[in-house]
Amino acid sequence: MRAWYATAGGLALALCLAGSAAAEPIRIKDIGKMSGWRDNALNGYGLVTGLAGTGDSSRNKTARQSIANMLSRFDLTIAADDVQSRNVAAVMVTATLAPFARPGDAIDVTVTSIGDARSLVGGALMLAPLKGPDGKIYALSQGALSVGGYKYDMNGNVTQKNHPTVASIPGGAIVEVGVASSAADERSSVTFVLAEPDYTTASRVAAAINGKLGGQAAVARDGSGVDIQIPAGRREHLTDFLADIENVMVEPDRRAKVVINERTGTIVSGGDVRISKVVVSQGELKVSILTDNTVSQPWVIGQGGPGVQSLAVSNSRVTVEETGGAGYVTANNTVGDLVQSLSRLKTNTRDIISILRAVKAAGALHAELIVQ
């Protein structure tokens, strides 16, 4: 029988109660950013050369046409149908342009195959322009690929590690056009935006900034943004002012969440997510059917007259085993307590997930249950 009992003094079966950990103050720069700071997506099309016969096949007209177009820039005229190389692969190139990027900065790029190439191991990206959503070129990328895997096949035998058709080039793109970002936009105020909107946290951020600057310089506009007035004497040194704001300490509020991934059997929960009084019953039904095949022979071989012969007999046995038990969980216990106790009882992760979902449905789990 499986059972767990939570009491005021402890939990039976040697469960250690984990007290709710008090939230520690952190810098506000770790829970949000100033409005106007954003990354910009770049993408482009290119060719990877130098592959050892693992590139796009001759059936891929995109790669063949791209090779012919590339050679035409070097005063070489060749028809696309005449290209038969398997050492080239057509790829898409993506990168992220950080805020305040300046010309000459190096950024990382990701290269992905769009054809039927088997592997990008050993290849090098030819010069490829990276464009923004507005169609303008912001960076140029090229260089040797770094692939964290491989794939080799011969005579029907395949050996593969990780994903060989996706690669990266650390620092493989050079910024040509920077991004002009101004935190204040020549205004007298800035807005701090929380990464996870929450009214309580926004109010605490405004109070902490006011305690640092004095007065009522910061006002929580809503659960996401906090408006901050820039003092007239500090507008000429805006960077120093924003650095002081970023390092203000605040104790953020946290919503209770339990995240469950049924595909991998992963459960992630805050250690202080509470469970109300609830009774849980969990059991398993095991049915075993065994069949014994025997042969019945006549008492005297060769006697008994016509029609007497050996007879095959099947004897079946059905066994039903039911295991499981019920548990009573009192108040002031957490999800961590329950999961720890079930783990010590050697309850598998799938059963724990089912129990947590049932506890949530019963209204005893005071947290948002997220199933991925």
Score class of each variant (00 low, 15 high):
Pro99Phe: 04
Ala98Ile: 12
Gly115Glu: 09
Ala117Tyr: 02
Val88Arg: 01
Gly135Lys: 06
Thr110Phe: 01
Val88Ala: 11
Ala124Leu: 07
Asn155Ile: 08
Ala139Met: 09
Asp75Leu: 12
Ser113Tyr: 06
Ala98Trp: 12
Ala106Phe: 12
Gly104Pro: 06
Val91Phe: 05
Tyr150Thr: 08
Ile114Thr: 08
Ala89Gly: 02
Gln142Met: 13
Val83Ala: 04
Tyr152Asn: 14
Met126Arg: 11
Leu130Tyr: 06
Pro99Ser: 04
Leu97Met: 15
Ala117Arg: 03
Ser146Asn: 13
Val111His: 07
Gln84Trp: 00
Leu76Met: 12
Arg102Asp: 12
Met92Cys: 12
Gln160Asn: 06
Lys151Ile: 10
Phe74Ser: 13
Ile78Phe: 12
Val88Trp: 03
Ala90Cys: 07
Asp81Phe: 03
Gly143Gln: 03
Gly149Met: 07
Leu140Ser: 14
Ser85Tyr: 02
Asp105Cys: 13
Gly143Trp: 06
Pro103Cys: 10
Ser113Val: 13
Asp134Trp: 05
Ile137Asp: 11
Gly149Phe: 02
Tyr138Pro: 05
Val93Met: 11
Tyr152Ala: 14
Gly143His: 05
Ile107Leu: 07
Leu127Pro: 06
Ile114Tyr: 01
Gln84Leu: 08
Val158Gln: 06
Asp82Trp: 03
Asp105Asn: 15
Ala124Met: 11
Asp75Gly: 08
Leu76Asp: 02
Ala90Glu: 09
Gly135His: 10
Met92Lys: 11
Ala89Thr: 03
Ala117Lys: 04
Met92Ile: 15
Asp116Pro: 08
Ile137Met: 14
Val93Leu: 02
Ala80Cys: 07
Ile114Leu: 04
Ala139Asp: 13
Leu120Arg: 05
Lys131Gly: 00
Arg118Ala: 15
Gly149Gln: 09
Ala139Ser: 11
Tyr152His: 09
Leu127Gln: 14
Ala89Asn: 07
Val111Pro: 01
Asp75Gln: 14
Val91Thr: 09
Lys151Gly: 03
Tyr150Trp: 05
Ala89Ile: 06
Asp108His: 08
Ala89His: 03
